[in-house]
Simulated assay, not measured.
Amino acid sequence: MLNQHLVWRRALPIVVIAMAALFLLRLHQANGAGQPSESITAGHRLAEAWCMECHVVGPIATGVKKVPPDFIAIANRPSTTTLWLKVFLKTSHPTMPNIIVGPSEADDLANYIMSLKRD
């Protein structure tokens, strides 16, 4: 019985510190802070490789046709959120090529598109 109390007495501070760190990390990600630049850069590279044939993916989109919409227009729709983009990118759509997007790729693409949002 004494050994069990000793184990819990040593483990409890470690568990509390780990939980606090995870909680603070979650708060940091939920506070609306900007996306990591590495993810945005990776998303831009993916957009150029996969999406540029149909969409304007760069920051300059003047005088181009609006079907399909350019990424700036998508980012600036009131309904566009990072979560919405991730779900959209993982869902099959008849008007888009059937590209299999992995979770980290969806994160990067969504972060890149949201980086084009005008404040």
Rank of each mutant, 00 (worst) to 15 (best):
F71P: 00
I17V: 12
M96H: 08
G34A: 09
Q35F: 13
C54V: 09
Q4H: 04
D107F: 11
V101A: 03
F23A: 05
Q4E: 07
P59N: 14
M96Y: 15
L109N: 02
P97M: 06
E105F: 04
L6T: 05
N98Q: 06
I14W: 09
G102I: 00
T82H: 13
I14F: 11
R118S: 07
I72V: 15
L116Y: 07
R45H: 09
L22Y: 02
Q29N: 09
E48C: 02
L46G: 13
R77F: 01
E48M: 03
H93C: 03
G32W: 04
A11E: 05
V7A: 01
F88S: 04
D107V: 14
T80C: 10
I72Y: 03
G32V: 08
S39Q: 15
N31D: 15
C51S: 12
L24S: 01
I113R: 00
N111Y: 07
P36T: 02
D107N: 14
V56D: 01
L46C: 13
K86R: 15
T41V: 14
T80A: 10
V7R: 00
N3R: 09
S92A: 09
L6Y: 03
E48G: 05
D108K: 15
T82N: 13
R77P: 00
I14P: 05
L109D: 01
G34V: 06
D107I: 15
L109Q: 10
A20G: 03
C51L: 13
G63R: 12
G58V: 08
D108N: 15
A33L: 04
F23R: 04
R77C: 00
A110K: 13
L83E: 07
A73S: 14
E38G: 06
V15A: 14
A18Y: 06
T62S: 03
M52N: 13
T91W: 12
L24Q: 04
S79G: 07
H28L: 08
Q35V: 08
P36K: 09
M19P: 00
I99F: 10
V56W: 03
M52W: 08
E105D: 14
M114Q: 10
D107A: 05
L6E: 07
L12Y: 06
A21N: 01
S39H: 12
N98P: 04
